[in-house]
Design a protein around this nucleic acid. Structure first.
Lengths: 155, 155
DNA sequence: CTAATCGATACCGAGTTGGTATTCAATACA
DNA sequence: TGTATTGAATACCAACTCGGTATCGATTAG
């Protein structure tokens, strides 16, 4: 199904909320309430997001989390990578993890290319893009034309 | 990790091999040998691929499978959909499957857009593209410019 | 000093996924 | 018409990943 895990989904939602209140801070408790994600799960998520430097934590009363940078500067790829590792369609395109077919598989060398394409979509979509209205950076014509028109005057 | 299941991976490899020998046929036995995928697993895969009309089967001696259309006309999206259902990043972007956050989640309406983008990459990449050399339809400049440059003389 | 809040570790149950076994149906060819 | 070859269909299973939980320790505002 090519899906992103529920944790990553939740994580992105949390980042979205942090973006909305920026530069204010939100406690895990509040985040759990806002997102309806169970608190222990929020805990696990925040650790990952903090490790990846997407959020900054403050302890003690009045503590909580705030976004480390602006929502424009955080991509979906950032978020997903923080929570479930670098997106990799197949084992051959992944850093960790081995494909037992390696050696026989004629496609092994080709997957990274496709993977990079997908990754780009995720990198070019920011939290901001996701949260606001608009066409996700990508003009509707993309739907009918080749992925990118041949750049004029090249080669 | 945003990965495609191993079955889908195998399935695409199988389709690739069928493409190479087209319009000849290959038996499951041969396919298992060629791809190093265990025969029972090949069986399961071929049923799915046949149901999706990506391959055509012939029974009896000299039987086997052949590609239903040319490798250019089969996209990665076709293959993945046949094997693990329509790709959907999140539950909100999926047909089947419900997100228990539906109703509270401010992002629910936005995911389908991102999903469509990813889907397009998969739809625009054919078996042929994957198997052959070349730049996957997508010129390198895509790596540095906005996903698609604003079409000149528009709006 | 104390309450509020984050940090870290270990653990668990369930569902998905990849893989297997078995039996039946069709067909080329002798 | 019989037999060997090949696909079709069903049911089943084991292992791993994933989402979720519990518990305790560390920091800091007031």
């Amino acid at each position: 199904m090519l899906k992103v895990g529920r944790l990553a989904d939740y994580g992105i939602l949390i980042l979205h909320h942090l973006g909305r209140v920026r530069p204010a801070r939100l406690s895990m408790d509040t985040l759990a309430e806002l997102t309806h994600v169970p608190l222990p799960t929020v805990r696990k998520l925040m650790r990952l997001l903090a490790e990846a430097d997407l959020v900054v934590s403050k302890r003690g009363p009045l503590g909580g989390y705030e976004l480390a940078r602006s929502p424009q500067q955080i991509s979906l790829a950032d978020a997903i990578t923080a929570i479930e590792g670098r997106p990799a369609l197949t084992a051959c395109a992944s850093d960790r993890g081995h494909c037992e077919l390696a050696g026989h598989c004629e496609l092994a060398g080709r997957w990274p290319g496709v993977n990079a394409l997908i990754l780009q979509v995720l990198e070019r979509t920011s939290l901001q893009d996701l949260g606001a209205g608009g066409s996700l950076h990508v003009p509707p014509p993309l739907l009918r034309e080749p992925l990118c028109p041949e750049p004029p005057g090249r080669k």
